[in-house]
Write a protein that binds this DNA or RNA. Structure first.
Length: 219
DNA sequence: CACTCGATGTTCT
DNA sequence: GAACATCGAGTGG
């Protein structure tokens, strides 16, 4: 099921044409074990891995370049003050998808870590587009490649991720992290973005691929 | 570049 | 009522 539509390859001959770049192998979903670990470790190891969304409209994919960890006892974590209707997915099994609406109009994508019952997760804050850029441009209403997915709500809009995916499973189609080998590179650790001072703003729980042009805030 | 501010609806106090 | 894991348009160096 859920086949990727055939790419309209247009090979012209012996010249190397740049108008049809080589298709990236989207791989298969990473297995659940990956997420059943220390949340900060998962947040770091998600860097360089490919986030994939396969739809009939076409596939979109991007290399994860920025994440944040949200932990038990961390005042910035939605689950820190106990279970509610909104944060219920955070207490699900590792690999559960947690999407929430923020500021009444934007969606943020999280992946739940740790065994069932522990409310921790990793926020995906930015990706580098590697597939479906045209779709992303349409959805974002913007041509500039650097603006497509360089923020938590930008990437969800570009990749058509919303509350439909809440409570979903990141280890299965259509939305998954690929088992393709991760891109390697130096990692920067910083304070998290957008938290008020009393919500653990000083904690060093943001992870970035250094100098990547698609970060929400440069590092 | 830096900074301010409005949008918009759900969640929390 | 206030806050919110944001974005983009607007203003002013």
């Amino acid at each position: 099921m859920s086949q990727i539509p055939p790419a309209s390859e247009h090979v012209t001959g012996m010249e190397i044409q740049s108008n049809s770049p080589p298709e990236i192998d989207l791989g298969k979903p990473l297995s659940r074990d990956f997420y059943d670990r220390d949340t900060t470790l998962v947040a770091r190891e998600l860097l360089g891995r490919m986030l994939v969304h396969c739809e009939s409209a076409g596939a979109t994919a991007g290399i994860i370049v920025e994440t944040e960890a949200y932990l038990q006892g961390d005042p910035g974590c939605h689950a820190a003050r106990g279970r509610t209707e909104r944060n219920a997915p955070m207490f699900g099994p590792p690999g559960t998808i947690y999407v929430y609406l923020i500021y009444g109009m934007h969606h943020c994508l999280n992946i739940v870590t740790q065994p069932e019952g522990i409310g921790e997760a990793v926020l995906i804050r930015a990706v580098e587009p590697v597939r479906g850029q045209e779709l992303m441009q349409q959805r974002r209403g913007c041509e500039d490649t650097q603006e497509l997915t360089s923020g938590p709500a930008k990437l969800t809009e570009a990749m058509n991720i919303d509350l439909r995916h809440n409570f979903g499973d990141i280890t299965t189609n259509p939305l998954y992290i690929s088992n393709q080998p991760p891109v390697d590179g130096p990692v920067a650790t910083t304070t998290r973005i957008g938290l008020s001072p009393d919500r653990g703003a000083e904690l060093l729980l943001r992870y970035c691929l250094s100098n990547n042009p698609y970060l929400s805030n440069p590092v």
